[in-house]
Design a protein around this nucleic acid. Structure first.
Length: 346
DNA sequence: TAGACGTGGGT
DNA sequence: TACCCAAGTCT
């Protein structure tokens, strides 16, 4: 036996990956976009990519129905690339972070135009596409193409920060987390390894109540069963959210209501919406026929609905049947207002 | 680099 | 209730 550190490191890292993969073989979640461990099926890069974009900052429960809907409407990358913007934005409505949907289309079209309709099969090529950052490039490279990429999402940050007891606060800790994880990535099953860590973070090494008793990598975990497990990773303090106010216009003609499309780079950009004022710090004086409160990531909003006779002369938009507003693809903020109107109108 | 960017569910 | 959290990316 060699006495070189690399030899012992290899044994230890191999054992770590094997314990994790054995657990994953038994406990993997069944998900619509996932090829089960042990399956002979080959992952479809389109489905892997689509799921990864949808899952950014979004729960599995929220994504599942949207993933099913998108793959039914657009079964292949070419189908999505050829879709109308309005249809894709409407199908995304309610999922949030709408820049993802705009970039989704831009990415699909770039792959068709610049890559012959096939995703690049390495991190660098993927990373250059719209909406694909460090995480998604690594995840698609590992899961769809079997590349030994170091995949680090919020689950994996938590698992590794605890397992190695990394005290550096996020996001600075990311570098140390990557460095700690890199030696453990197995060449044979890098995609399953990444998904195993994510499942572990979602089911065992959870933020508030880690279940160390059932953790497959607890043996060499530096915080196993201690209060440090709940304390880590260290996160920066949160800032207070401001409160803003706005007015939306309810412009009705017979059984239709006037909708406009929001500017591409604005909040809720590219989405159909009720027209209205800019959102400001001061509440409006107009008298409202309805009102909703909505909480965004970085501010809270009170939006008043005010009746108007007709759209602005220069406004571009469309009359939409009120009975069919569910199909308009409104962001949740506006869907709340619309629902309020339907309750009161009967 | 820090702030912008949605939404729903859990505690 | 209020806050935290979720398979991040872009500028």
């Amino acid at each position: 036996m060699s006495v070189q550190p690399s030899t012992t490191t290899t044994a230890a890292t191999g054992d770590f990956a094997n314990r994790l993969l054995d657990w994953y073989d038994r406990e993997a979640r069944t998900l619509p976009w996932r090829v089960p461990p042990g399956s002979r099926a080959v992952p479809d890069p389109y489905r892997v990519w689509l799921a990864e974009i949808m899952l950014q900052q979004t729960t599995v429960a929220a994504v599942t129905g949207y993933f099913t809907g998108f793959t039914a409407l657009w079964p292949t990358l070419a189908d999505l690339a050829a879709a109308d913007d309005a249809d894709v934005m409407a199908a995304w409505a309610g999922l949030g972070y709408y820049a993802r949907a705009r970039n989704l289309l831009a990415c699909a079209r770039a792959v068709v135009a610049d890559h012959g309709g096939h995703f690049p099969d390495d991190e660098a090529g993927l990373r250059a596409l719209p909406g694909i950052g460090d995480y998604t490039a690594a995840a698609v490279a590992a899961i769809a193409f079997g590349r030994p990429a170091v995949v680090v999402d919020a689950n994996i940050e938590r698992v590794v920060a605890r397992h190695r007891r990394i005290e550096v606060p996020l996001p600075a800790a990311k570098r140390a987390i990557r460095a700690a994880l890199a030696p453990f990535v197995p060449a044979a099953r890098p995609g399953d390894f990444a998904q195993a860590l994510m499942d572990l973070g979602a089911r065992i090494c959870t933020p508030r109540a880690p279940d160390c008793a059932h953790c497959p990598i607890a043996d060499d975990c530096r915080v196993r069963g201690t209060s440090d497990a709940v304390r880590l990773p260290v996160k920066p303090p949160r800032k207070a959210k401001p409160h803003r106010h706005g007015v939306a216009h309810w412009i009705r003609s017979d059984d239709n209501v006037w909708l406009e499309r929001r500017a591409p780079r604005a909040m809720l950009g590219g989405m159909r919406a009720l027209p209205g004022s800019e959102w400001t710090d001061a509440p409006p004086r107009e008298s409202a026929i309805a009102e909703v409160r909505h909480s965004f990531t970085h501010f809270d909003l009170t939006l008043k609905l005010v009746a108007r006779e007709s759209p602005d002369a220069a406004a571009e938009g469309e009359w939409w049947p009120i009975a069919e507003l569910d199909a308009a693809g409104l962001p949740t903020l506006y869907r709340k207002l619309v629902d309020r109107m339907r309750e009161s109108d009967g």
